[in-house]
Design a protein around this nucleic acid. Structure first.
Lengths: 194, 194
DNA sequence: TTAAAAAATTGACCTATGGTAATAAAATTA
DNA sequence: TAATTTTATTACCATAGGTCAATTTTTTAA
């Protein structure tokens, strides 16, 4: 198939694959359609896939010993998502993955990724660079949690992810920022008063 | 050179390189010896290298707008360290890197890494996997900051990194945990009373 | 389009951790 | 080993953000 007509040109933007590889890669990608509220993964499950978000909004969250939810990541169009700690190891999932807005995803299995990596170095480079970017954004998140107040983190979240805020509930954002929904509400009030 | 006598067998444990590659890789690694208190990198500098810690103890920290330090990572034997956000991009460093115990390091430049990646896929795979592990540990750190109390985080730090605690000051640990040195002191007192 | 459910806001009060300052202990260095 | 500097501890008070409970607003579904 011609790559120009293929989802590959969206997912792996910037890479042009030899024709013989395109069909192989496409054969490893599986489409999934999910509805708002659906669960993609639960803690304790085995994590076989990572997911490319073509449409919709997804979040990964952790449930602590008190039953409290903590949002690790949101994903919208053109993001990859999974419980990577489990996906990269042989551990079971610790995260839950939930659909916040009707979603169209492509999934690829760990096994197939390894096969593809041996076929085409470009793909391994692509995912290595994705990982570097994700690592960098986690680093910024850690520093922001250490150095910034709740209010500052919220303002920064809004400017960094304006497209996410529209898709999610305030209590999702609060659980991402590490504060309660009541605190977020007070912060929002202060901000409108400024 | 025979890989068995080479630092390569330590740094890239588990990979056996073809003989013709060993000299090439070694030619890209540079030894650096530093004293306690030395600075390896300052914010605003260009980050050309990543560093393999063969001996000693290193930390990366961020200085916020109030002048307060926040430790992002410690590194001891067999860890790689850099300001990765800058190293992987074209941005200037936001981190400082400081030597906490006399250190023997090997550094490799970004440019040389790219050259080596085109020579040998094994190296790219090695660094991709390193990055996956580092990403996973940052994920755990974020969740721990969201879900655990200062006391829990300290206890967890001690059990996860028993070899680091010996090498660093309490205020380094406090700034890693996101608390003041006074709070850490109170927590330590409580723990001895238990 | 209305009823029911879910989400957000607000107020009163509470708690974990921060700030300051003084002292003690430990580590350097002379 | 004595002197000096650095680090850690402690006490007292301050505050950001949490908890609980009531209410309002928004969303969803009948």
């Amino acid at each position: 198939m011609d790559q120009n007509n293929s989802i590959l040109s969206e997912i792996f933007k910037g890479i042009s694959f030899p024709n013989n590889e395109i069909d192989l890669i496409e054969s490893k990608l599986e489409t999934i359609n999910l509805k708002k509220g659906d669960t993609l993964l639960r803690a304790d499950e085995t994590v076989l896939y990572q997911y490319y978000v073509y449409k919709g909004c997804i979040r990964t969250y952790y449930i602590d010993k008190y039953g409290k939810e903590h949002t690790l990541q949101f994903a919208i169009n053109d993001w990859w998502i999974s419980d990577y700690t489990a996906f990269f190891s042989t551990e079971k999932a610790i995260m839950h993955i939930e659909v916040l807005q009707d979603a169209e995803l492509y999934r690829i299995s760990k096994k197939d990724m390894e096969i593809l990596f041996t076929e085409t170095t470009q793909l391994e480079t692509f995912f290595r660079k994705k990982m570097e970017k994700a690592f960098a954004s986690f680093q910024k998140r850690i520093l922001s949690n250490l150095a910034a107040s709740a209010k500052e983190r919220y303002v920064s979240f809004r400017t960094t992810y304006p497209n996410i805020e529209q898709n999610v509930k305030n209590y999702h954002i609060a659980s991402y920022l590490g504060i309660t929904t009541e605190s977020l509400s007070r912060i929002r009030k202060e901000l409108t008063q400024d």
